[in-house]
């Protein structure tokens, strides 16, 4: 039993999955068995698809030891661009609009990556500036206009198909494979674990870093288009402040803020955990005014558990050390 427990505390993903299952069952019972329906679960995924998708990009950024808080700014700018293109009947083709949003996101991310890798600017500062710039441009360029309802009908239609689910699933599968089984994934982990060693081992650290921020931008752009199609509107203030949810999902999923540690599965579980709690609060009789408080408590609790379990496993590693 002790070994079993050790194993569980030593593996963040497993413990998180177990907590998630327990939580799910408890909420299901408290809500009178209305929680486990397929529609409900589908809705949970849909409502949190933006956070989930962007958490993948954030995972990579955090793994290199960086952070990107400009993502919702990028999301707003690309989403607004898509909305306006539709509103003024420039482009109506949904795949093309998605491609444009992704392209804009990629450029924003590339810029971040370039400033951070080549200019050696601290990631949080660079993306803090970028956050305001892209959010600001989303307002200024389009004169503070909105697009909604009929204007973005074609996008909304796509939002009601299985499309968003497929995109979400595909993103996770691709990231899982890339991070686990390709040289790129290995390099991202290497840089976060020991930047100097990675450099001396012949890894082009700058290039990987630029790629990581660009991918983050791609996903933020994708989330921009997805946001328009899911919510049927584009506004300059869309998803304001949600970047912290994305970071929180990663942290709950066991991603280290100092880099080098974290997995796609953990990130997924972290995102779902967050989403389930969010969804469950009203069902168990807690009103939405409680949400922030509960969120905060959960994040702190998870981080503390994480730190303690890491200390335990480090201790075990010490005990194994040959002296």
């Amino acid at each position: 039993m002790k070994g079993f427990l050790k194993k569980i505390t030593g593996n963040h993903e497993v413990s998180l999955a177990i907590i998630l299952i327990v939580l799910f069952i408890v909420v299901d019972i408290l809500s009178g068995f209305t929680f486990h329906g397929i529609n409900n679960i589908g809705e949970i995924f849909k409502n949190n698809s933006l956070t989930l998708i962007m958490s993948l990009g954030m995972l990579c950024v955090l793994l290199t030891g960086g952070i990107d808080i400009s993502i919702t700014g990028v999301l707003a700018f690309s989403g607004m661009s898509v909305g306006m293109l539709m509103k003024y009947n420039v482009i109506k083709n949904v795949p093309l609009l998605f491609a444009i949003a992704i392209g804009i996101g990629a450029l924003c991310g590339l810029l971040n990556g370039f400033i951070i890798a080549k200019g050696k600017v601290s990631p949080i500062i660079c993306t803090l500036g970028a956050m305001y710039i892209w959010r600001g441009l989303a307002t200024v360029v389009f004169n503070g206009e909105w697009a909604s309802g009929e204007n973005v009908a074609a996008m909304s239609e796509f939002g009601n198909t299985a499309g968003p689910y497929i995109i979400l699933a595909a993103a996770f599968v691709i990231y899982f494979v890339v991070m686990k089984w390709t040289p790129f994934g290995r390099k991202v982990y290497a840089i976060g674990s020991n930047r100097e060693a990675a450099r001396i081992s012949g890894i082009n650290v700058d290039r990987v870093e630029i790629a990581v921020y660009t991918l983050m931008g791609v996903l933020a752009g994708l989330a921009g288009a997805l946001s328009v199609s899911l919510y049927g509107s584009a506004q300059p203030t869309m998803q304001d402040g949600k970047e912290m949810d994305v970071i929180a999902a990663c942290v709950i999923g066991g991603v280290s803020m100092s880099g080098g540690r974290g997995t796609v599965v953990g990130t997924l579980l972290g995102g779902i955990f967050y989403a389930v709690v969010y969804k469950a609060l009203p069902l168990v009789g807690l009103e939405s005014i409680w949400q922030n408080l509960i969120k905060g408590v959960i994040i702190l609790a998870v981080v503390i558990i994480n730190v303690v379990s890491q200390r335990l496993s480090r201790r075990q590693a010490l005990a194994r050390r040959e002296i």
Binding site: P183, R186, K187, Y189, A190, S193, N194, E196, A197, A198, I200, S201, G202, I203, G260, R261
Partner: peptide, 25 residues
């Protein structure tokens, strides 16, 4: 490199992954 901990090895990684890091590609 002189400083094995800082520049030579990724201490949290297994030995296998460490020695093959330079030849990933």
């Amino acid at each position: 490199p002189e400083d094995r901990h800082k520049e030579g090895l990724i201490l949290t990684w297994g030995l296998g992954m460490n020695v093959t890091l330079p030849v990933q590609d």
